[in-house]
């Protein structure tokens, strides 16, 4: 293949077993259910979806923070689902994570210096003075200063903590960063600072991002390609501009239309979905979205749809596009 893929996820599954009491059957929660996608070097790939759709679990599984139930994850051509904990440790300098909650993701007992020193120490990068220099540099890059070195996380505001978290993620100059809702816990006026910082760092270090978010306006602004997830499955993939201009899957359409307007005079045709996301422990048969889909047909509740390809890598998993027109008519007539 001509394309240079940094990360390739194939048929990834992550199931959790939940026991509901001693005598009840264990239920299986399909948090991630057969997900495949690839991320090109240097791009920002977005996973978008609502809570419980499996986007965060996908991120954590790629990082090896939880084990995959099935499937392969290739990082620079190497399957990282099969390697040992210690081999994985060595690889970790090349991919890092930015967490959602800047209050929970920093060890409260460690100073900024200790937090930033740890990755350098673990991966034996640089020596003594050079390490200190590196830490000063990275602090400056993320917009903090030397005077913050010996402070503890609780002394900082949310935005500043997120900068510390980002500094920790980039200090080893990784190739790949998974950012799990990196700005959704921050104040509005601080969000744009952090987004700018991430864009800057990407340019500076040639980073590849997997950007996990539910915030469509941020995704539209900063990502190159988007995968829309619903109930553990990817329902649509497209380049960002294409996806926002020409969403194919009814769920994507509803999601985009649900974003609040930016100006009170802006009129928007809104698709209001009925009901709530079904439980991943008991997903609907057939297409997982059919219970809320305004265009649901008979076939949708019976058979899971296949991927349909459009131009430029745009694909959607929906029966509206799988069947030829006559078949759809048949379905409608029979119903």
């Amino acid at each position: 293949m001509a394309e240079d893929y940094l990360v390739k996820v194939q048929n990834l599954k992550k199931y959790y077993e939940v026991s509901k009491g001693m005598f009840k059957q264990k239920t299986i929660i399909r948090a991630v259910d057969d997900v495949s996608f690839s991320i090109k070097r240097g791009e920002t790939y977005a996973l978008v979806g609502e809570s419980g759709c499996g986007k965060s679990t996908t991120g954590k599984t790629i990082l090896g923070l939880t084990d995959a139930t099935a499937g392969e994850i290739y990082f620079q051509g190497k399957d990282i689902t099969k390697i040992s904990y210690s081999d994985m440790r060595k690889l970790r300098k090349d991919f890092q994570m930015i967490f959602q909650d800047p209050y929970a993701s920093l060890n409260p007992k460690k100073t900024v210096r200790e937090i930033l020193m740890e990755p350098l120490r673990i991966h034996k990068k640089f020596e003594g003075k050079e390490r200190e220099k590196k830490i000063h540099e990275i602090l400056e890059i993320v917009g903090l200063s030397k005077s913050h070195l010996h402070r503890y996380p609780h002394e900082f505001s949310g935005g500043q903590r997120q900068r510390i978290g980002i500094a920790r993620a980039v200090i080893l100059q990784p190739d790949f960063i998974i950012a799990d809702e990196p700005v959704s816990a921050l104040d509005v006026s601080v969000q744009s600072q952090v987004i700018n910082l991430m864009l800057d760092l990407q340019k500076e270090f040639g980073l590849t991002y997997l950007f996990i978010s539910h915030d469509l306006s941020v995704i539209e602004h900063m990502t190159d390609r988007v995968a829309v997830m619903y109930l553990g499955k990817i329902v649509e993939v497209a380049e960002t501009e294409e996806l926002f201009e020409n969403p194919k899957h009814p769920y994507t359409q509803a999601l985009i239309s649900a974003v609040p307007v930016a100006h009170p005079r802006e009129e928007r045709k809104r698709i209001i979905l009925k009901g709530d996301v079904p439980s991943p422990a008991n997903p609907p048969k057939g297409c997982p979205f059919h219970t809320r889909c305004p265009f649901a047909m008979d076939i949708c509740s019976e058979k899971a749809p296949e991927e349909v390809f459009f131009t430029d890598g745009h694909k959607a998993t929906c029966h509206l596009y799988t069947n030829s027109k006559e078949e759809i008519k048949d379905v409608i007539r029979n119903s």
Binding site: S157, D187, S192, Q193, I195, H221, M222
Partner: peptide, 19 residues
């Protein structure tokens, strides 16, 4: 600073500092 009021991929307008 709303992303929709900024050009895609450009630097967002940001208010400096903290509350």
């Amino acid at each position: 600073s709303l992303p929709s009021n900024n050009e895609r991929k450009s630097k967002l307008y940001a208010i400096q500092g903290q509350v």
